[in-house]
């Protein structure tokens, strides 16, 4: 998909948060009145540091699952839709969000232009450092791999340290 969005929105760093944590947050909030909670109270309830709580919320917000009016966190209609879906359907729904994130778009474009649709871990790390300067590229790297695998946007093989595009021809075994 070619859109101008990825070019106008500067790539954000990726929080080092797993998909399960994000889904757990949304599930917890859905059980609350109005599917919302005060962020400070939420941190207390979870016995989590406020900074850590904010990082999970930010991750959920990047995927369009929640929004944060004032000091609250509220589940979006999309968040409810994801939680109501089956486990395989959740992946489909979240894939649509993850593939639109600028970092993922850039890495996919990069893979698409390379021969065999393969690049090394080093090349991807350099690309990340270019895209999100002044950030810890290593923590973004692990989220890139994990969310990318979850959404099946690309494959990563840690033995050969290569990323590859999971095209349909490759997938047929």
């Amino acid at each position: 998909m070619k859109s101008s969005e990825g070019d106008t929105v500067p790539p954000q760093s990726l929080p080092e948060i797993g998909i399960s944590q994000i889904l757990g947050l949304v599930e917890l909030l859905i059980g609350k009145e109005g599917a919302r909670e005060d962020i400070y109270r939420l941190a207390g309830e979870l016995s989590m540091e406020l900074g850590e709580t904010l990082t999970v919320i930010k991750a959920a917000e990047m995927l369009g699952l929640v929004h944060t009016p004032g000091g609250d966190v509220v589940v979006e209609a999309f968040g409810t839709k994801v939680i109501d879906a089956s486990i395989p359907e959740r992946k489909e729904l979240l894939r649509e969000k993850i593939e639109l994130l600028p970092v993922f778009k850039k890495v996919r474009e990069f893979l698409a232009t390379e021969e065999n649709h393969e690049v090394t871990r080093e090349q991807v790390s350099e690309k990340l450092a270019e895209l999100i300067p002044n950030e810890d590229a290593e923590s973004s790297f692990s989220t890139l791999v994990n969310w990318g695998r979850y959404a099946e946007l690309f494959g990563y093989n840690d033995d050969s340290q290569t990323f590859y595009l999971d095209t349909d021809e490759d997938r047929g075994e």
């Binding site: 944590q21 917890l28 979870l46």
Partner: peptide
Amino acid sequence: DVLTSINL
């Protein structure tokens, strides 16, 4: 962690 266990 607490959120992951809710999800699982």
